[in-house]
């Protein structure tokens, strides 16, 4: 970090709000696919392997699912750039009972810190001396962000070990917690939060970019 401040800065610029939003949206896309695969919502043959984040990700090749995710993503991109989103939730519902059996929640925090950036760019000469003091919010390189994302995906994959097996056929839905003042197209409608009452909750890792922080939380219904 301290070795090449110039290079660092260019990377920081690259990951501006827009770029960061894109990255987060992409993360959501892959995480939805990964959850669908890992939790067996769709048969394993429906997925094809793709290299991403230095991992082999499995992406659904089912036309309907692809179309649905694409629709969500196109709208999500707009909302992300506008900073309207506070949460994205993947809800897994039992087809037989209609109960919510699992709920993957991604909390999005948007940092608004233009002042920090300014001060950073104003004093590039003293940057080598500054980093220890500014350890609170260090500028991350893309590789660091990627490694954070990687570890989240590893956790999602590993979570299969402790999550209860899903009984029967399941289906899924994606909920978005958006600000009340955001533009909502006709295709989208209000929904209830589909919270799991008295469910177990496990906080997974989080990752952060220059302007976003994403926390991951999975809650699930306990076996009775």
């Amino acid at each position: 970090m301290s070795a090449e401040p110039g290079k660092d800065k260019s990377k920081v610029h690259k990951l501006s709000l827009k770029g960061s939003s894109k990255l987060v949206a992409e993360f959501f896309q892959y995480s939805i696919n990964t959850i669908l695969f890992q939790r067996g919502v769709y048969p394993a043959e429906d997925f094809t392997a793709v290299k991403k984040y230095g991992l082999t990700m499995l992406v659904s090749s089912d036309d309907q699912v692809k179309a649905y995710i694409k629709k969500i993503m196109s709208q999500l991109d707009k909302w992300m750039v506008g900073g309207k989103i506070s949460k994205l939730v993947v809800v897994i519902t039992s087809k037989d009972t209609g109960e919510t059996v699992e709920r993957w929640q991604f909390d999005v925090q948007i940092f608004s810190r233009p002042s920090k950036k300014k001060s950073f760019s104003k004093t590039p000469a003293s940057e080598n001396a500054v980093p220890p003091a500014e350890d609170v919010a260090p500028e991350k390189t893309e590789a660091e962000i990627q490694s954070e994302i990687q570890s989240i995906f590893r956790q999602i994959t590993a979570s299969v070990t402790f999550l209860p097996e899903l009984a029967g056929d399941c289906t899924f839905n994606v909920l978005v917690y958006a600000d009340a003042d955001s533009d909502v197209p006709m295709e989208w409608g209000d929904s209830d939060a589909k919270e799991i009452i008295n469910g177990e909750k496990v906080q997974l890792r989080s990752f952060s970019t220059a302007s976003h922080k994403v926390d991951t939380l999975v809650s699930y219904r306990m076996d009775r």
Binding site: D179, W188, D190
Partner: peptide
């Protein structure tokens, strides 16, 4: 409570399953 809205795409897999049911 007032600020956030929970939104979902109307034609999601869950709703489709519900409709079929």
């Amino acid at each position: 409570e007032r600020q956030t809205r929970v939104l979902s795409l109307r034609s999601n897999p869950t709703s489709e399953v519900e409709a079929i049911k």
